[in-house]
Design a protein around this nucleic acid. Structure first.
Lengths: 218, 218, 218, 218
DNA sequence: GCCTAACCGAGACGGTACGTCCGGTCTTTTT
DNA sequence: AAAAAGACCGGACGTACCGTCTCGGTTAGGC
């Protein structure tokens, strides 16, 4: 479900005449934020399985109904937390402009602060249990967590092709998938942190060689 | 824990008098298989989180004690199921011998039958919840599921280097990690099947270009 | 709390200067009635415990604040409903004047119409949960529900003693208690209706024999 | 539901041949007792409304499932507690044999010990909320709480008629109802204790006069 | 006619209990 | 002693309700 659908509910049922002013008290956005913030913290501290809704509710100083009014289940809440986390850290700044694709990518991948990196890693590390809580739910489409991140990387790679730094046949989508997969595997399965050694060897050892040497198209 | 430790229990605690005659009824190996089989099916049908031990016990027509006598926990059981699945499909045949690294890799990655691929995919797709069920447990080392598979791939790549098909500086370990990560991401997060298009473009677009064009060592 | 106190709030807190002009919009008495009416109906239909304030509010087409502005809690509302019900049916007519205590009592006890009796019974039958909702609250004194009713009966009995129909030693208070207890037990615990057979045998079999044959004072 | 039905479940589904030995672990009667005991205590301490199932479970050192396996709801549990309480205190001793109906009745009504009386009173006083938790449930038949008690009184009254102490036309059932009603009213509504003054004046002022002076049958 | 305060319906809010469901352990009977 | 069956404790989940608070709007006086 997620935030958006919740809002839709009150607006969707007018079809013709009335502008359908939503009656009653308004949703308090501060509550949304307190809940998301608390959830993020708890995920980082104890992981998905050991996190309980009562913990969230207590730390957010919210009522259970306020949580379930917005998200239909624990997994639904966590799903939203993930996209919210990345939205927060990415939308602040525009694309990096270092002049070379290698440093552009590293600038994005390397988190802005050590604290942020640490938190993101700990959240991800405790997240395994969440991934397919309800099998069919996330079956279509990508996993929200990596989506905004990959958007930025996609733009960087496209720009590098445009200015001739990478060959036009370079398979951008595949490269993006490699980056996302390696990051997910490292956090979710290997439980190792996203340090610069990791990102560096990923870019230099795999991504750039593959992009610069695309296979001859069949 | 797994199968082995369960067996040890009855032999370890008498050391002197009796020549280790196991008293009472013998363990029934058919029970092991019924449980593993049922678990695999249920994993494919509903995923890790929605699978309950009672489901397993009911389908295997076993008792709960019989399960917990062999495996110490739900995750322990599933861990065993996974290596059991891979053992079954890999140990049959030795290394492929096609003469070229490309076809060698594809021969291993491509599953032997469509039905088997489908089941393996569905099990993996419903497995996310399992990955870090207990945060610290699998924190060190790799995930068992991919271990035997990567062993085979490692041997293939080493052989290709030995016979000069790949340069000696090729980073075998990184390549293995790319393969495992991409497979895990596709199954666990994207929930898309392991078809030959996927494996083909992975090998041709990423793995081989990266192996053949290693970065200049710093 | 009840109706009165709600009104008092706006009048009580200025005592000297202003001539106590209540500012703002006036309370709408129609709202009071809609709420009381709805509450009565719902009590008869589902009983105290299964009645929710949201039901009341929905049926009365009122807002929750409008209810809690007048009554401080669910029990407070129901308390008022009960005295309101009895006020309605008793205050209309003065004491009956049949000439004999037996017919006087029956005239009061027997409800005026079958429909009214039925509703009163159903309300009472679903009322148990309410009785000691807050243990200490009604601990002292009698239960309001039967108070006005017993007042009338008390007057009738006194009059009968005065005119010599009952002996002066007759224990009026005990007799009143018997009537109230039997009615409460029948409605609250036995869930059987207040038909004339019940009241008739109560008066003839218990109340009058006891009153006419008081025990020798010790 | 109650205790009995729970047991029936496992025995009811054999119809022809097998003696149907119930498989699996047996219900532990000690658990039943721990739960009933704890419930009684908590009822006496905080009343029905303020008693939570978690309190019961915690004090009884039981699991929630063990409670709900035996009783389908909070009210179901309390219903059973009540008959269990009275069964416990009455079945011990046979009918009293004082020779006169007055002292016989008082011997039964007056509780055996002050502590027992006090507990019984406190349970009853906090019980109001329970009475018609689900309206239709206790609609037919009497309320279990007073049933065993009235059985004893019925026997005493019959015996007194047989030996000529009371006239044969005495309405035993009505007298029993008076006793039960007065006791219920005093505990549930007036919240006053069952002291000997109360029982004494009830017997002497109401019950015996009514029994000894039955109305002329019409 | 405009201002201001209290009202109104609607409904979100914090808090808390309920009854369900599982994981992992323990007990009973049969093999 | 191991098997099937199932009861046991503990604890999280999602629902429902109470009494409070907030929203936009309406209804009166007093100016």
């Amino acid at each position: 479900m997620g935030l958006v659908k919740g809002l839709k509910i009150q607006k969707v049922d007018q079809s013709d005449s009335k502008p359908s002013v939503p009656l009653g008290r308004k949703r308090d956005n501060a509550v949304d934020e307190r809940i998301l913030e608390s959830t993020t913290e708890i995920l980082a501290e104890v992981g998905y399985d050991n996190m309980t809704m009562d913990m969230v509710v207590a730390r957010a100083k919210a009522g259970k109904a306020s949580v379930y009014r917005r998200w239909s289940s624990k997994s639904d809440l966590v799903r939203d937390v993930l996209s919210w986390m990345n939205r927060n850290s990415l939308e602040l700044d525009g694309l990096p402009e270092t002049g070379a694709i290698r440093s552009d990518l590293l600038a994005v991948l390397r988190p802005h602060s050590a604290a942020e990196s640490d938190r993101k890693f700990r959240v991800l590390a405790g997240l395994g249990s969440f991934l397919s809580h309800d099998m069919g739910q996330t079956a279509t489409g990508h996993f929200e967590l990596f989506q905004p991140w990959m958007e930025v990387n996609r733009a960087l790679l496209r720009r590098a092709i445009d200015r001739g730094e990478l060959p036009p046949q370079a398979d951008v989508e595949k490269a993006l998938q490699v980056i996302a997969s390696m990051a997910a595997y490292r956090g979710l399965i290997q439980h190792e942190p996203f340090d610069s050694e990791f990102f560096g060897s990923l870019i230099d050892g795999i991504v750039l060689p593959a992009l610069k040497n695309p296979p001859p198209s069949p």
